[in-house]
Design a binder for these strands. Structure first.
Lengths: 253, 253
DNA sequence: ATAGTTATTTTCATAATATGAGATTAAGCA
DNA sequence: TGCTTAATCTCATATTATGAAAATAACTAT
């Protein structure tokens, strides 16, 4: 194992339950000498990924700043923010934007009347790989070789799922054919979600998803087709916006 | 320079204007061989700090997830969120929470009617070290040796400031005496800010600040003392909440 | 599906540096 | 201003990071 790898492992020991750690504990947990632990911590502090609190260490300001930069320049967010706010305002439902990133699914933006949701389920909230409308859309639209990889690595070996490759394959095929996905009670009891993909217009790769989420009884008020239509209008607008950005960038070169 | 340092330098070249970079450019910018650049990028991708897009690389999902974790477990945010939302609702002003971190000042939470503010000035937005009410409060309440260090390293050498140590010292002393700070037009023309410190009740160290920000004309509506009082009620509540958390944690050990 | 292209990893010898134990210095605190 | 604890430095040695080129893997387009 390289020193680079060992140093980056320091970040892994920060989690709920241990957010502030002193150097001796870091050394112990990663089987490093005190001197080496101090060296790693110093490098990470210099980079801003860690910071000192009294005589212990915790995650640093650089993380917050980098996330801000990512948010500022994310074309999906900049084109989707207002669109999503409108959807939320007009329906009273919560609207999520989510992405697939290295085999992980996370929310990247939320628009909701309920402030608490923004805190708990907002940007950065990890989601299971194939539960809930967002996740399923994001997975279903991956390229065939990726789909297989996801199944082999994350669905098949997991106790949370009980899907044969055939079942998985036909479920994703249906989602691709429909162009959206509806789920009930998969992430939270009593909640329904409807998600649609955001595609890259140049090559049809999926780059994100938008979802309506609300109580199942709230959804009973709506005409299903109308909700899907609104969702797809929204994704279409975001797709076009991101596409235009792309053209501008490629023009420069 | 250590390999650790060189690897972490890769993160520095991602910024507005260059958010997606290919390995050859990384190698060139940091004077690394192709092989080494690939090695660094691989380590950073494995850690989730970078991620691949097509054949280039960009900041990764780990940053978003780490920020989410920091937000979830930040005692100031969890105790301040609702308090701040109430302040904002009752006044129509924007309410900021900010912290001092390694010589940098950043916003960590915002409550505002104006959604756009949340995007642009929200969590992660860097602030100048001694302009605006938040920054000034956060600096003024630092311990004397830190105060001197901040002046020497960031105020005195900067063209943005024209303060002698004596002036700086008396300005911070006044802020400490008042227990709050008011500024006009320092960050944005036409805006006024009022900030108060959030202190650690055990040792009186400053751990953050809360600020009202709004147009100067909006402030004319309010009785100044009443606004300050509301602000200090809010900081007192957050201080007590954080203090209780602390006691719980120390009880465990 | 397959060839052709480009991106990425591996190999290997060597130079560079990461490492640990203890000594030294700096920082924090009463 | 001392006094305690945290952090850095020193130095010899083992470890590994490095670059150039070759091998492989991942895409693309047919």
């Amino acid at each position: 194992m390289s020193s680079l790898n060992k140093m980056l492992n320091v970040l892994n020991i920060f989690g709920p339950g241990s957010l502030i750690i002193n150097v001796d504990d870091i050394a112990k947990k990663l089987s490093l000498s005190r001197a080496t632990a101090y060296r790693y911590v110093r490098e990470l502090c210099d980079a801003g990924l860690l910071t000192r609190i009294d005589t212990s260490y915790t995650l640093g300001p650089r993380i917050i700043e980098l996330d801000w930069m990512m948010r500022q320049h994310d074309p999906l967010i900049s084109h989707g923010r207002e669109v999503m706010a409108d959807l939320s305002k007009n329906t009273g439902l919560t609207v999520y934007m989510s992405v697939f990133y290295d085999g992980h699914i996370i929310n990247t933006h939320i628009e909701s009347d309920i402030k608490k949701y923004g805190f708990t389920f907002g940007r950065g909230r990890p989601l299971p790989i194939f539960k809930g409308a967002q996740s399923k859309v994001l997975v279903a639209f991956q390229k065939p070789n990726r789909l297989k990889k996801i199944y082999d690595e994350q669905i098949e070996p997991s106790d949370d799922y009980n899907l044969t490759w055939k079942e998985f394959n036909s479920e994703t095929k249906k989602i691709r054919k429909d162009g959206f996905c509806v789920t009930h009670d998969e992430l939270n009891l009593g909640l329904t979600g409807i998600a649609a993909p955001i595609l890259n217009l140049e090559n049809d790769d999926i780059i994100g998803s938008i979802a309506f989420v609300g109580t199942t009884s709230a959804f009973e008020l709506f005409r299903f087709e109308a909700v899907v239509e609104r969702l797809q209008e929204a994704t279409a607008r975001i797709e076009k916006g991101a596409h235009l950005d792309n053209e501008k960038v490629t023009d420069k070169t």
